[in-house]
Design a protein around this nucleic acid. Structure first.
Lengths: 203, 203
DNA sequence: CGGACGCTTGAGGGTCTTCAAGGAATGTGG
DNA sequence: CCACATTCCTTGAAGACCCTCAAGCGTCCG
């Protein structure tokens, strides 16, 4: 078990892989630096989710604490040993990887062809799933606009403008910068799935 | 072992997962249909690569033969049994999944923030790796512009125009529609990695 | 030889980015 | 506890890029 301050890295891209981690509390950010210096946020990790899976010998991305974080650390040697001794453990690992792969593929499919507004709507709705608070319509983002932008492949300005449009259409409200209240989840879902072309009537 | 004609599907999105497949000859296309009817091509599969990994009970995407294809089919029951009996088999499976996950993450990172020209350059270069013919600078695409467009998240027109620009800059030539000859691989790599902003001098 | 299909090329418009400046929020030191 | 500095967020205007619509061209097949 390991406690991390905000902004602390547990590993960087290219580091040797030594452990698999499980988030117990707080939120982690996984990101990848591109050749041109830009940053692609691969994923955010909430409690219960694994980090460090599916890499080669070296880490593919950097892992950084967004908030204060508590991590469970499992040395790779133990992972390997358990896989030898306990076939069901291997199956479980395969399942976790499979889920992560499916999610990542979804990310490809959706980031590629959607407008900024649709991306942001999907992002917000994804937060509901992540935290499991499906009825709690007040969300704490725990991250800045730049994180969202780097995750969705947009600029900070576009993210900000998209938030403004969601507010104008009364789909969400923003009592604080990092807090989102969903006001019309039906329309938000419709937007995320592409059902609405562009409905500004907001009625 | 199973032989497929062109355009034949081995499974559709949502089908129950029954086998894992290994491409022996030819090229497969994995794709995913979006809510709005569009198609996202997830990946192409060349000989030696696996298909059907990392799914849940149901297939996440459809798998279709692009060319004539020969497939090795392994029933899932056998996969599971071997995983119980032979831990190294499980490790191997985890490794394959890890590689696929890393590739997919790369796809996210690169599709998200790159221009059409950079995407196409990367796509062409990716073909070199896939076929393993690193010195063979004449490539057979085996697919139409629409496949490339749906893979890169572009329109057919933009793909066509991007090919035209690569030709104008003498980076590639196209003796036939589906055949690419790389004429200046250095510049193509520079373009793919974002080193060149926009060099029209073509010298 | 004719038709169908896929590829190319053009013009116009929409969306996102870039550049720029102002405003809110957060943290630090007095 | 307040003032100030820094950082982050918002908003505006101009431009770039890609998409859409449209037409022309080439190729393959019947």
């Amino acid at each position: 078990m390991r406690h991390l301050e905000r902004h602390v890295h547990i590993f960087y891209e290219g580091d040797a892989q030594t452990h698999i981690y499980r988030t117990k509390r707080g939120m982690m950010r996984l990101y990848h630096l591109l050749a041109d210096g830009r940053r692609q946020v691969i994923a955010f990790r909430l409690p219960g989710q694994l980090i460090g899976l599916g890499e080669h010998e070296t880490q593919f991305c950097s892992a950084q604490a967004l908030t204060e974080v508590v991590l469970q650390c499992v040395p790779l040697s133990i992972v390997h040993r358990r896989m030898q001794e306990e076939p069901r453990f291997g199956s479980e690992l395969v399942r976790c990887l499979a889920v992560e792969l499916a999610e990542t593929r979804n990310q490809v499919a959706f980031l590629n062809r959607r407008s900024a507004l649709e991306k942001l709507a999907t992002f917000i709705l994804g937060f509901l799933t992540w935290t499991g608070e499906d009825r709690e319509l007040e969300l704490e983002l725990h991250m800045g606009r730049e994180d969202i932008a780097d995750y969705l492949g947009l600029t900070v300005e576009t993210v900000s403008r998209s938030f403004a449009r969601l507010k104008t259409q009364n789909l969400v409200s923003l009592p604080q910068t990092h807090t989102v209240i969903i006001q019309n989840i039906g329309k938000l879902i419709a937007l995320a799935t592409g059902a609405f072309e562009d409905d500004e009537t907001g009625s």
